[in-house]
Amino acid sequence: MLEIKNLHVSLEEEDKQILKGVDLKVEAGKVHAIMGPNGSGKSTLSYVLSGKAGYQVTEGSVTLRGEEVLDLEPEERAAAGLFLAFQYPVEIPGVGNMTFLRTALNSQRKMRGEEEMSAAEFLRVVREKAKSLKIDADMLKRPVNVGFSGGEKKRNEILQMALLEPKMCILDETDSGLDVDAMKLVARGVNALRDENRGFLVITHYQRLLDHIAPDVVHIMADGKIVKTGGPELALEVETNGYSDILAEVA
């Protein structure tokens, strides 16, 4: 599904290397988790994968279902099936959430040469998906993320994911700022999307999200590299011992 090879990334503005050779392969149907201390480069990885400006890939490659990703514009990556649930979803005053969702969906369909979804069909689909995430009509009407609580913003990210039905989902700290109930809601949304054709990369600082979204593989990232890979038990190890033991062990 997603294959990252020897990825080196520096900041464009300053001479600072952030990713120092990341190798990672997420297979279809699998959930991979990346854990790691703050500042280790997890968000940077998610941004580079989705095409944010300001980063320079100095070495390495990324393919999505065999297709080279790094040459594509962000919108082309989205149409190719890549989705990033943002750590900090952006507020866009003056653009209604519904308009935003419909424009996104139909833009992707158009790029893929598919037929656009009719207004009526769209409304039906959004309402249905919103309901299971406890997103009410008011949240759909309001400007994108404006005045949303932390939990509402994250639920709105999952709604977008559910609607766009991407092939490869990257979730960056989707659990941060959520209480237990909100986290369960989000996890349920994610789990509903799990199937054999879809890959997940769940980035999280804490283990607790992984209680609800059971990962197949867990990676530990430190200082711009994957330093350790294992099964779900690795997340539990982080939970009990913190990062310092693992980091000491691989140092």
Binding site: E73, E75, A78, F83, I92, G94, T103
Partner: peptide, 22 residues
């Protein structure tokens, strides 16, 4: 905001127009 919209599949020109209206 531009990146957010584009990351959802909205082409740059259209995303710019949405932000202009915004």
């Amino acid at each position: 905001a531009l990146f957010y919209l584009r990351s959802r599949g909205v082409p740059k020109a259209l995303a710019t127009d949405m932000l202009t209206l915004s």
